[in-house]
Structure formats: C-alpha cells, structure tokens
Computed example of a mutant assay.
Amino acid sequence: MNIIEIIKAVVLGIVEGLTEFAPVSSTGHMIIVDDMWLKTQQFLTKPAANTFKVVIQLGSILAVLFYFRNRFVELLGLGNRTKGQKAGSGPNQGRLKLTQVIVGLIPAGVLGLLFEDYIDEHLFSSRTVLVGLVIGALFMIAADLWGPKHPKVQTVDQITYGQALSVGLFQCFSLWPGFSRSGSTISGGVLLGMSHRAAADFTFIMAVPMMLGASGISLLKNWQYFTAGMLPFFIAGFISSFIVALISIRFFLQLINRIKLVPFAVYRIVLAGIIYFML
C-alpha cells in the first residue's frame, strides 16, 4: 500500500464525513468520486472496495454516537434526565424513547435485509445515483413547499410513535443509492409536521443502530479483507471520516433550520447535471 493509495483513502473518508448526514447522498458522492477520479478499483477488488466503504461509514456513525452520547445514554436507560428536562412521573417522561427509534428502524431494516444483494449488485453505479439525486431533490423541494409553515413538533422529544413509523417508511427511499438517508427522512419528517431540526435530530439518532447493524453484518461477511496490507488504507479512511463527520454534524444541525432543504436540492440537481455530461 503506497502513499498515493493512502491519500485516496483519506479523500474518500473526507467525502463520506462531509456528505453522510447532509441530504446530498454520501453513497452517491463516493461512487462518483471513486468511479470518475480516484479509481480505487484499480488496486482493490470490488468486495474489498465495498468493505472499505463500510469502514468509513462506520467512522461517520461513531461520530454521531459521540455527538449524541448523552442522548444515547438516556435512551438505553443508563443515565439521568438531561439538563432542562421537565419533571414527570419517570426518568423518560416527555422524552424520545428507545422503542420509538426501533419502530422507525423496522421498515427500511426489513427491506434492506430482503434486497441487500440485489441493491449491491444492480444499483451501485453513477447512472443509478444520478436518478436518485434528481428524484430525491424533487422530494426535498416538495417537502419545503408543502410542509406546514409552523410545525407543531419543534423538538425530537415531541415525536409520536406514528410519526416515528412514518419517518421509517420514508427512510426506505434511501435504499436507492443517491436518494440519501437524511434527505428522505428529514423531508418525510417535515411533511409530517416536524421542524427541520427535529427531523434532522431523529434522522441522526435513528441512523446509528441502523448503520451499526448493517456495517456489523457487512464486516463479519468480509472479515478476510482486513489483512496487514489493507489495514493502513482502512484506518486512514476511518479516521478522516470520523473527524470530518464530527465537524459536519455540528455545522449541519446549526444550519438546517435556517436554510431548509431547497439549497441542498438545488446542489443535487446541479451535481446530477454535471454527472450526466461527464458519463
């Protein structure tokens, strides 16, 4: 593994960290950057390349786990109420519950398990990503146009079980590479009457168990690729993804309620146009 290949791992980790939680499709960006510029397939087999993408995605997910660490401690019943929580009949009164997160995970989790092989085999290409970018962008614009101007759900703790399940159904769109997990769930949440920040918080929290589970299964299936020669490549991508994602999460959550979804949708359409003319 030479220095150029390590730099490519760092670049892909940065791309993953920047785009995993913005509604622009991290998978789409990685496919595009790799297929068109970095060409890691020249020195990685397809299974090894897919394993690397899982590794850097894991870096981003651990960044979310770190950022929301107090929230996850509460969800697991391992800590007390956070500062500012209203008193109630129990430690979780008026708070987002672990069961609500689980309800939101069920639809995409089931479909993902059923169609994992088909998605990996047929949908990971620049052309399919292009389609996902455009349709996802139109969905985001629709959410900003048709979502309530004064949403009733201002914080993640006001989300109901029905809304959690509905957001989980919207998350199924993200199984198409390029559609974007955060794009589909934040847009769905806005249409359901959530503020952009509440929908984003729930999206990030829900992403952790979903992606940890998917990543864990994938890593167990592809453990043979963690050889001494490949470890520097994997570690470089993982570290860069974790650091950049940690910065990006804070920036995005401060931004989303101010600029909404349309600017991200416009970016996606412009990006799709560039890809179309480069293919």
Rank of each mutant, 00 (worst) to 15 (best):
L12W: 06
G13C: 02
V15W: 12
V15Y: 13
V15M: 10
E16V: 00
G17W: 05
G17R: 03
L18M: 04
L18P: 00
L18W: 01
T19Y: 09
E20D: 13
E20Y: 11
F21T: 07
F21W: 15
F21N: 09
F21C: 10
A22V: 15
P23S: 11
P23G: 10
P23W: 14
V24S: 10
V24K: 06
S25P: 09
S25T: 12
S26N: 11
S26Y: 08
S26V: 11
S26G: 09
G28R: 07
G28Q: 08
H29I: 10
M30I: 04
M30T: 03
M30E: 11
I31T: 08
I32T: 14
I32R: 05
V33R: 06
D34M: 06
D34H: 04
D35S: 15
D35I: 01
M36P: 01
W37F: 15
W37N: 04
W37K: 09
K39D: 09
T40P: 03
T40H: 04
T40D: 06
Q42R: 13
Q42I: 02
Q42C: 00
Q42H: 14
Q42S: 14
Q42E: 14
Q42V: 03
L44Q: 13
P47Q: 13
A48K: 08
N50S: 13
N50T: 07
T51C: 12
T51W: 03
F52D: 00
